[in-house]
């Protein structure tokens, strides 16, 4: 059956051997049968827990479906119409975008700065690097608990630091105007290690001859950085922008743990509202519509970032 392609892998000899009862073995050994049998277990799982749910939740989003009345009643676009009118969704979109605008540039700036500082052979450098990497090993939940404690309005270290600087005490996570900033701060800390690793890897890929050439041409450190290093880092920057944005738009863990969307919905981001609708209110239909809306937002933003980013990205080779 797959004689043509078997020939690539030593077929002729095999065909000589496989006369008689060995036909079964040949069939089992064919690319068709082995291919499918190798692929099936993994693909089945991805289909069952990936492909099927993607279609299913699309269907759900057009239904008035709850936990008990699962899959009853076609509701047309009513879930999407509700989505467009829901004031909490409008707020959630706003919070998600504000958070993303804080988190993504914040993490990249911290990551780039630390990576440049750590990209040299000085004493204790392994220790410095490990300190940054360690933030990768902490779970979002551990991170959120620590930061809730650090930013505790009554006993937290953050307010203590402010008092040392003779600045007024803040309510932080209890304040509708500050809570989102605190959440941005904790997630930036949590992603520092990731950004540092990506930027350090990119920095070490820059051939030092280029930097030396710039120096010989009389460029100062800042100009070398601005004109040589930064452009050569642009692929890494584009990757981080896209990757961090996708993660920022899906913010959930920290909000769930530290504020539960409050105070006064101030930290209700899209995924938190989606979770609330799906697994607190059990409005599966409406929640699926929100999920698809989130998916759309992610696709649109990612495509824009790639389109715009390409123009500013310099690829060697």
């Amino acid at each position: 059956m797959a004689a043509g392609s078997v020939a690539r892998a030593g077929g002729p000899r095999q065909r000589l051997r496989t006369q008689g009862g060995a036909t079964v073995r040949r069939v089992l050994d064919s690319e068709q049968v082995t291919g499918w049998s190798f692929v099936t277990p993994g693909v089945a799982i991805i289909m069952l827990f990936g492909t099927v749910p993607i279609i299913w939740s699309a269907v759900l989003s057009f239904q008035r479906s709850t936990l008990n009345t699962s899959g009853t009643g076609f509701a047309g676009l009513s879930n999407y119409r509700q989505l467009a009118r829901d004031p909490v969704v409008a707020q959630a979109i706003q919070h998600t975008l504000v958070y993303t605008a804080l988190f993504v540039p914040g993490t990249m700036a911290v990551g780039l700065f630390l990576a440049v500082a750590m990209n040299r052979k000085i004493r204790f450098i392994a220790f410095y690097r490990t300190a940054a990497y360690a933030t990768m090993a902490i779970s979002t939940i551990s991170e959120a608990i620590v930061f809730t404690w650090l930013f505790d309005p009554s006993y937290g270290v953050a307010n203590y630091s402010l008092s040392l600087l003779h600045l007024p005490q803040q309510q932080f996570l209890n304040s509708p105007s500050e809570a989102l900033f605190v959440i941005a701060a904790m997630t930036i800390w949590g992603w520092t290690g990731f950004a540092v690793v990506v930027y350090l890897a990119a920095l070490q890929g820059i051939p030092r001859t280029l930097l030396e050439a710039a120096a010989i041409d009389g460029a100062g450190p800042w100009r070398t950085f601005r004109r040589i290093t930064l452009p050569l880092l642009s692929p890494a920057s584009l990757f981080l922008t896209v990757w961090l944005t996708i993660n920022a738009l899906q913010l959930f863990d920290e909000v769930y743990l530290s504020t539960q969307g409050g105070p006064l919905h101030a930290t209700t981001v899209l995924v938190y509202y989606l979770y609330d609708q799906a697994f607190q209110q059990f409005n599966f239909g409406y929640a699926s519509a929100i999920a698809y809306f989130l998916f759309l937002v992610i696709i649109v933003i990612t495509v824009i970032q790639f389109r715009v980013g390409r123009r500013f990205t310099y690829y060697r080779s």
Binding site: I54, S57, L274, A291, I299
Partner: peptide, 14 residues
Amino acid sequence: MVPFQVTMIPQFII
């Protein structure tokens, strides 16, 4: 390409 949030409800039902 699909975020987990899209699949989680059917995944729960399945």
